[in-house]
Design a protein around this nucleic acid. Structure first.
Length: 375
RNA sequence: GGGCCCGUGGUGCAGCCUGGUUUAGCACGUCAGAUUGUCGAUCUGAAGAUCACGGGUUCAAAUCCCGUCGGGCCCG
């Protein structure tokens, strides 16, 4: 069993758990910094470790296109190639094929698409994606799924959902066929719940995936343009069907307040580009809310981004200096604010876990939100 | 001493010849917003100009004419 439920918060559905993978254990609820191309943008592996990252996310689609799977195979796997020796989750690229690829033709067999890099045509079946992910040798692998945008007509959402189930089944079959080459422990394979904003589709998808039996369950197809309340409701709706003895992963979220809200209803895992993307674009997350570093009020503000933060950026640099770096487009600015944001997110997760362990998650949430201004 | 060119938001330019269709356009900069299984990307919005100054012609002048000031170049 890969997931162990350690403690259930007494006043909410928040749960403390442990996920066991080939490269080590992960405390949940956890946040996975996104390292699509085999790097969490601007951060070296050692810096991620200093922030307390236990797992990062990478992407089969991107690595398949560049540098190509053969290169990573010759490097003896992704961990070795990128010199990150803690767990890695590889996303299938389902999302990218639907968001980045130029032309795509989805059929029951697989996806035909044109590379967003050089326009070359590729055809990938769910089995191919699993094969790629096995070559990458990540600890947790995601099957190919079909993600639809919001709004999506129900008849198409249903087609995509059924296709996702079929692909999930084929992915599991493909995954169990091959043993992992470089480790004794097997890769964990998660199922991805689709079904857009339709409760009956989401319910059916959840149940069918559970029948197939995965190591964990992800909720996909969220944050694709739908209103926040609708998203929250559909996630909450799905969670009731997911087994308590498996990790639940909400894909692609989110803002700090959204993560806290999702933990409260029982989500264990998150990934999101927000801390690094926003960091690169000059927005920092602090205990008081978002801080747009490049804004004029910070020209002569010599305080750190967040006075209560213990990250390298906050210990050494002022808002004024960081603003200057953004103003002059110096890459150090992107790096320091990314570092701060990743630290902030991971510190948030540590505090969340501590609060759950002590049965005071609800109080923690209240205290956090009373300081923190959203929007 | 003579001749020529130029003067338009913070910066660089367009518009002027053929006056009205320009509430003066563009780029960069500035200010602000977006960003959710990636984006050193991109998008959106805003502020900012008595069109060097003065006079004239005209129903109407950044635009045509005269003068002044400022900058540059050429001839002596």
């Amino acid at each position: 069993m890969s997931y162990t439920l350690i403690h259930q918060d007494k006043n909410s559905k928040a749960r403390l758990g442990k996920l066991i993978t080939a490269h080590g254990e992960i405390d949940t609820p956890c946040f996975m910094p996104v390292g699509t191309q085999g790097t969490v943008k601007t951060l070296a592996p050692g810096e991620l470790e200093d922030c307390g990252a236990q797992i990062i996310l990478s992407n089969a689609y991107h690595l398949f296109l560049r540098p190509g799977i053969e290169v990573i195979k010759k490097a003896q796997g992704l961990h070795n190639f990128i010199s990150w020796h803690r767990p890695i989750l590889t996303d299938s690229g389902g999302y990218q094929i639907f968001s980045l690829a130029l032309l795509r033709k989805v059929s029951d067999e697989g996806v035909e698409f044109q590379s967003h890099i050089d326009g070359a045509k590729h055809f990938l079946r769910p089995e191919d994606i699993i094969n790629i992910e096995q070559e990458l040798a990540g600890d947790i692998i995601m099957p190919l799924d079909e993600c639809v945008h919001y709004p999506c007509a129900k008849d198409y959402a249903e087609i995509a959902m059924r296709r996702t189930i079929d692909w999930a089944m084929r992915s599991k079959a493909a995954a169990s066929k091959n043993a992992m080459p470089n480790t004794k422990k097997r890769q964990l394979l998660f199922g991805i719940v689709q079904g857009a904003t339709y409760e009956d589709l989401r319910k059916e998808c959840s149940q069918r995936l559970i029948e197939i039996d995965f190591d964990g369950y992800a909720i996909g197809g969220v944050s694709v343009g739908e209103p926040k309340t609708l998203r929250y409701n559909i996630v909450n709706f799905i969670l009731q069907f997911l087994p308590l003895n498996r990790a639940r992963y909400l894909m692609g979220l989110g803002m700090p307040e959204d993560i806290i809200g999702a933990v409260e209803i029982g989500v264990d895992m998150f990934d999101c580009v927000i801390p690094t993307r926003y960091g690169r674009n000059g927005t920092a997350f602090t205990s008081e809310g978002k801080l747009t570093v490049r804004n004029a009020p910070y020209i002569e503000d010599f305080r750190p981004l967040d006075p209560i933060c213990s990250c390298y950026a906050c210990k050494n640099f002022s808002r004024a200096y960081l603003r200057h770096l953004f103003n002059t487009q110096e890459i150090l600015g992107a790096k320091l604010v990314s570092l701060h944001n990743v630290h902030f997110y991971l510190e948030l997760m540590r505090n969340i876990r501590k609060a759950i362990a002590e049965d005071r998650f609800v109080e923690f949430k209240k205290a956090f939100l009373s300081n923190y201004t959203s929007n």
